[in-house]
Design a binder for these strands. Structure first.
Lengths: 204, 204
DNA sequence: GTTGACAAATGACACGATGTCACTTATACT
DNA sequence: AGTATAAGTGACATCGTGTCATTTGTCAAC
């Protein structure tokens, strides 16, 4: 997380810095990004950067999580709209991400994110399913998902189902960039995979 | 891939270099690893390193793929043993990886691999399912998997099933290191997930 | 055995990146 | 105004990468 100093900055300066960071992380991946470029673009001295953030990673994950906050809200909306249908809700979220990526800059940004997704990044995406407000941790899953239509016997199985569906969404996005697939191909794959998951892999 | 110069080296020198590399990649992740340490440990000049490999990544992925070659053979054995049962075969492979990791050094090496798994690394693991001999590409899946017991209608679905099962194996390993799970917990999760996959997520 | 051409080895170096720190400037409170 | 505390600043120490001019080794042909 950014240091308190960052949040003490006036909103405008914060935004300038975040914009500069996004520009750099759109150009190249986290590993290749350089703080020099970011501070140059934002027109702040190098020393200041370290007043605001611990390091490059700190800024990167803050930026990513801010992005994902919106997606989390969207997922909640989807779950309400689809009466707790987790498959349709995540399908719509995937579709929304894909649409967002039709814009050149956003495409490159996400490309850099997904092709270099380590554990910490994966966790950020998986946490789409968890909703933190204040100190309490509301579990989206338990509150909104319709379990009636799911073939599960207990909480553990519910958690695993959610884990697998999230995993598949994430993997489809990684595949998109890795194999340069069109949005239609991605959605097609997701649908095929979900159909298989629903009907079960074993015959009979 | 290493440059031809590397393969022209006498076997012993190749091994020394690979051992030094493995030591470094066991100490830290690919991103943090330094060529300086590797050449120091292997006692070769820096310039020589670049005669043998394009860069750090080149060496890393060569090393990783050499490791995975053995695992690929093991998977084939498993498929034969389990009469083409993909779920049991991958379960045994996972178990074998977990057992291998009980050794301190191996644990750290894989920890660095899995917690920093980008697209290229994921692909290396997914390619466990593909078998390259000479110029021909044999598809393990099509040759050895028993499709009779699988609830699939065409080639595409078969491919997706394999994709998902591999993905789940890989994710379980990432989770192991991310959440510091015991081998028993990992296997338990895998089994729960496979049980769910087999019976299907949708009720009725 | 000498020569010449080509492959390999070598390490100094240019370049660029990170994180720190001593110092300056701003802010706020008495 | 005076002082304590927070923020701003940029030069610098340190480390890492990849290159390149130069040296060394190999081997076939004469």
């Amino acid at each position: 997380m950014p240091r308190p100093t960052f949040f003490n900055l006036q909103e405008e300066k914060q935004q300038t810095l975040l914009q500069a960071a996004k520009k750099e992380f759109t150009r190249v991946s986290l590993a290749e990004a350089s703080i020099a470029n970011i501070v140059k673009e934002a027109d702040i001295p190098r020393g200041s950067f370290y007043q605001y953030f611990e390091n490059k990673q700190d800024l990167y994950f803050y930026l990513l999580n801010e992005h994902l906050k919106e997606k989390r809200e969207e997922l909640i909306t989807n779950l309400r709209k689809h009466c707790g249908d987790i498959f349709a809700s995540i399908r719509d979220l995937l579709q929304s991400l894909l649409t967002e990526m039709e814009e050149e800059g956003t495409y490159q940004f996400y490309r850099n994110v997904f092709l270099n997704m380590d554990y910490r990044t994966e966790k950020a995406f998986m946490n789409l399913m968890n909703y933190n407000t204040l100190d309490k941790k509301y579990d989206l899953i338990k509150r909104l998902i319709n379990r009636k239509s799911l073939n599960i016997d207990n909480e553990e199985e519910l958690l695993q189902v959610v884990q697998i569906v999230s995993l598949i969404m994430t993997d489809n996005l990684i595949q998109k960039f890795g194999k340069e697939m069109t949005n239609e191909e991605v959605i097609h794959n997701y649908k095929t995979q979900i159909r298989l998951l629903k009907k079960g892999f074993a015959k009979e």
